[in-house]
Computed example of a mutant assay.
Amino acid sequence: MIPILRTVAEVRALARGWKQAGDSIGVVPTMGALHDGHLSLARRARAECGRVITTIFVNPKQFNNPEDLKKYPRSEEADAALLGTVPVDAIFAPEPEEVYPEGFITTVSVGGVAEPLEGRMRPGHFDGVATVVTKLFGMTLADRGYFGQKDWQQLQVVLRLTRDLNLPIEIVGCETIREGDGLAMSSRNVRLTAAGRRKAPVLYAAITAAADDIRAGQSDRMAIREAAEAMRHAGFDRVEYIELRDAATLMPSDDPARPRRMLAAAWLDGVRLIDNIPV
């Protein structure tokens, strides 16, 4: 049975023992409600590291909407069973008071790459992400951290903070795992109605078509407009943004010689879905 650790002292003692034995440590930070996307990260860590810790912590500091925090799915027992199939060596599932004890007043804030898109739509979100990720790296003493590319902007934020703060950890970005119909796997997908679930793959299809059109010479603006219209026609409640950005800086880019990323966020059935693809 995989040990489930609740305190920093427990996870730090275990990690120190592994380090003394010469093992490398990979950490997979999650908020639980695990799916095959999370498991793919754990498997990658398993293949590349001597020991693997998966963290399960619904981080209150990265939710700018209290209702979203309340509705976020929690399924620790099922998550532990899934992680047993990898298997990982330990699960770190602390209570909020363990991560943010009384009197906690420190925030890690990343500029630049954290400011547009999700940063604009969800004020304070990336401060919460950066703060908890920095803490988890320190708590687990990890040598490598594994993150999915579905949250592309989050991945760039984590890469930036580790470089800027000289953190002794390698960040590994892993491919987005999709359902058979193209929908990016997400813990929020379970909140879609049956009808919404049938519509949801249009997000990926629309941005894929837009990227293809741009590569074929269509203007960025026209391709994006058509993608948004396709999503609205399919029944999406609202398209928050579809943007073509520099893949590393997340700044607007019309230079096809540099790696670019198309990123999108839209609402369906009261659920906010995000996705991105290279262009």
Rank of each mutant, 00 (worst) to 15 (best):
K19N: 11
K19P: 07
Q20L: 15
G22L: 02
D23R: 14
D23L: 15
S24V: 12
I25P: 02
I25L: 11
I25Q: 00
I25C: 04
G26I: 11
V27I: 11
V28F: 02
V28I: 11
V28R: 00
P29C: 08
M31S: 05
A33F: 00
L34M: 09
H35I: 05
D36C: 12
D36K: 08
D36W: 02
G37P: 12
G37V: 12
L39G: 11
S40T: 11
S40R: 08
S40G: 11
R43P: 05
R44P: 10
R44F: 11
A45N: 00
A47T: 10
A47W: 07
A47K: 13
G50Q: 08
G50A: 09
R51V: 04
R51I: 10
V52Y: 09
T54P: 08
T55V: 02
I56P: 05
I56W: 00
I56F: 04
N59Q: 08
F63P: 03
E67C: 05
D68P: 01
D68R: 04
D68M: 07
K71I: 08
R74H: 05
R74A: 05
E76A: 13
E77V: 14
A78C: 10
D79A: 09
D79R: 09
A80P: 10
A80G: 11
A81C: 13
A81N: 11
L82S: 11
G84H: 04
G84N: 07
T85P: 10
V86F: 08
V86W: 05
P87M: 07
V88S: 03
V88Q: 01
V88I: 05
D89S: 04
D89Y: 10
A90L: 01
I91W: 00
F92C: 00
F92W: 08
F92G: 05
F92M: 04
A93P: 02
A93C: 12
P94T: 02
P96Y: 08
P96M: 11
E97K: 15
V99F: 02
P101E: 06
E102Y: 12
E102G: 14
F104Y: 15
F104T: 14
I105F: 14
I105K: 15
T106F: 13
T107L: 15
S109D: 14
S109N: 15
S109G: 13
S109L: 14
G112H: 07
E115G: 04
E115K: 15
E115C: 13
E118G: 09
E118W: 06
R120T: 15
M121Q: 14
R122F: 03
R122Y: 05
P123Q: 04
P123V: 03
G124D: 10
H125R: 10
F126K: 13
F126I: 02
D127L: 03
D127P: 07
G128I: 00
V129W: 02
V132K: 01
V132M: 03
V133R: 02
T134D: 06
K135V: 00
K135W: 04
L136W: 06
L136V: 14
L136H: 08
F137C: 09
F137T: 00
F137L: 15
G138Y: 07
M139Y: 15
L141T: 08
D143L: 09
G145M: 11
Y146L: 02
F147S: 01
K150N: 07
K150H: 02
K150G: 07
D151N: 03
W152D: 13
Q153T: 01
Q153L: 05
Q153E: 06
Q154S: 04
Q154D: 03
V158L: 10
V158E: 01
V158M: 05
R160D: 14
R160F: 09
L161W: 09
T162W: 09
T162Q: 06
